[in-house]
Design a protein around this nucleic acid. Structure first.
Length: 315
DNA sequence: AACCAGAACAACCGCGGTTCG
DNA sequence: CCGAACCGCGGTTGTTCTGGT
């Protein structure tokens, strides 16, 4: 027995929103708020839309202070770093980028960033042929292959590549032990505990969300505090050579030669961590350098994974 | 100019988690 | 305590745009 549909699909309009519908929804919410009930909202307004559709439209496009397009190098950097660290937790990642929505970040990653980081690898040995239609997935990524053609094209090292690949593979496997499936292992730095985003400035996103009575995934109360003890127990790990190497790789790949189309502001991103506040995105336990992906320990040993994770987040 | 493939983006779907009566 | 209703998330699909042939 499946779940009952949230609305009568026969009478509900689907597809792109018209300016009139946008105006109706926007005006109503600005005047009355959401009322805490999205399902009832379209009926109150007189919209022939599903409540979920209204919610999505408001959150992604109509609410104030939404930014579209023109992701900055700093945002690119945060997205890439967080994806490699926590996987496809788009709401968490988006919460670190004021004005960005999870949908926006997700689309941006899938259509641009992922290709910039990974897709170029597929071109190795190619002779300028176009990509095929399929977007890069974990399946079509070479599994840590070498640089077969020895060409001058940039790519991430095996270490960084494997992090991304493993992250994608994790999603496919739905590994219950994966960090991003286990709130206990989420970092307190991606909660709003400190109400700060990763570049150390106050997060206006949280304020915006609160103002409109919407809950943010970052308000995940149950996460708060659970990592504090771990943070106390885990000394801050210093930046090591691997960290610098991967940071440099990422920056080079995103904004180096052949990727100059983004305003040339690449120098502002991860620069020895200085531009990211005091957060060390990449560091992990130096004592485990035998494994290039040791921030992702997939053994069933939670304690080991937790230790790695605390290292990743410098907590 | 027409067609086509690929890219980009908007929106939908289904599920898990949470809330509330 | 239980179940229904609702919310929010992540994955997927559909549509439009763009550039190449």
């Amino acid at each position: 027995m499946g779940r009952a549909p949230c609305c009568d699909k026969a009478t509900v309009k689907k597809g792109p929103w018209s300016p009139e519908e946008d105006a109706m929804l926007k005006n109503y919410i600005e005047e009355h708020g959401t009322g805490g009930n999205w399902i009832a909202l379209p009926h109150k307004i007189g919209l022939k839309r599903c409540g979920k559709s209204c919610r999505l439209r408001w959150l992604n496009y109509l609410r104030p202070n939404i930014k579209h397009g023109d992701f900055t190098p700093e945002e690119d950097s945060i997205i890439c770093s967080l994806y490699i660290s926590i996987g496809s937790r788009w709401s968490i990642i988006a919460a670190q980028l004021p004005g960005r929505t999870d949908n926006d970040v997700k689309n941006y990653w899938n259509t641009k960033l992922k290709k910039r980081l990974l897709g170029r690898r597929k071109d190795r040995g190619g002779s300028g042929h176009h990509h095929h239609r399929s977007q890069s997935t974990a399946d079509d990524l070479p599994a840590g292959d070498g640089m077969k053609d020895g060409g001058s094209e940039r790519s991430l090292s095996t270490s960084a590549m494997e992090r991304i690949q493993l992250c994608m593979q994790l999603q496919e496997l739905q590994n219950p032990l994966a960090i991003h499936h286990n709130p206990l292992l989420w970092p307190n730095k991606v909660t709003d505990q400190s109400n700060q985003n990763f570049n150390g400035s106050s997060s206006s996103m949280n304020v915006t969300v609160a103002e409109h009575g919407l809950s943010s995934s970052l308000s995940d109360h149950h996460l708060n505090g659970q990592l504090e003890s771990a943070a106390m127990a885990s000394p801050s790990s210093g930046k090591n050579s691997n960290v610098v190497t991967i940071e440099a790789e990422l920056q080079e790949l995103l904004y180096g030669e052949g990727n100059q189309g983004r305003g040339g502001a690449g120098g502002a991103i991860i620069d020895g961590g200085a531009q990211q506040g005091d957060v060390d995105w990449w560091s992990y336990d130096q004592g485990k350098q035998s494994s290039p992906v040791n921030c992702w320990d997939f053994t069933p040993e939670t304690s080991s994974m937790f230790q790695d994770y605390t290292s990743v987040y410098d907590i």
